[in-house]
């Protein structure tokens, strides 16, 4: 873990390397985070908290650049199929219980 400023005499210090980045990369990254974690069972509040948390650098970067409203939309879209799945299961379970009652 670095504790000081970069040492310009250190041959391993990164200097002047540029990588290509396109507009929309942050959006794609934010969607990636939201959809991967939604598929892992995370719900909306938990996902939103991840984007707001400053220690999660990538999600927070997206949150700062895209704004909370856009992040909320992304999160809502990501959880929609999985919420539908949970609702369908709950309905099925309730029907099963009613049938046994």
């Amino acid at each position: 873990m670095p504790h000081g400023d970069p040492d310009p005499t250190d041959p391993l210090t990164l200097t002047g390397v540029e990588v290509p980045a396109e507009e929309g990369d942050v959006l794609a990254m934010a969607r990636g985070f939201a959809e991967e974690f939604a598929a892992s069972g995370w719900d909306e509040p938990r996902l939103l908290a991840m984007f707001q948390q400053p220690f999660y650098l990538g999600p927070r970067l997206a949150y700062d650049q895209l704004g909370e409203a856009r992040i909320r939309e992304i999160v809502a879209e990501a959880v929609r199929p999985w919420r539908a799945l949970r609702e369908a299961r709950a309905k099925q379970e309730s029907q099963r219980r009613n049938a046994h009652a």
Partner: peptide, 13 residues
């Protein structure tokens, strides 16, 4: 504690 000094990747990784 608040994380504001963490290095920020300005692009993708």
């Amino acid at each position: 504690e608040t994380g504001e000094q963490l290095p920020v990747h300005k692009t993708w990784f």
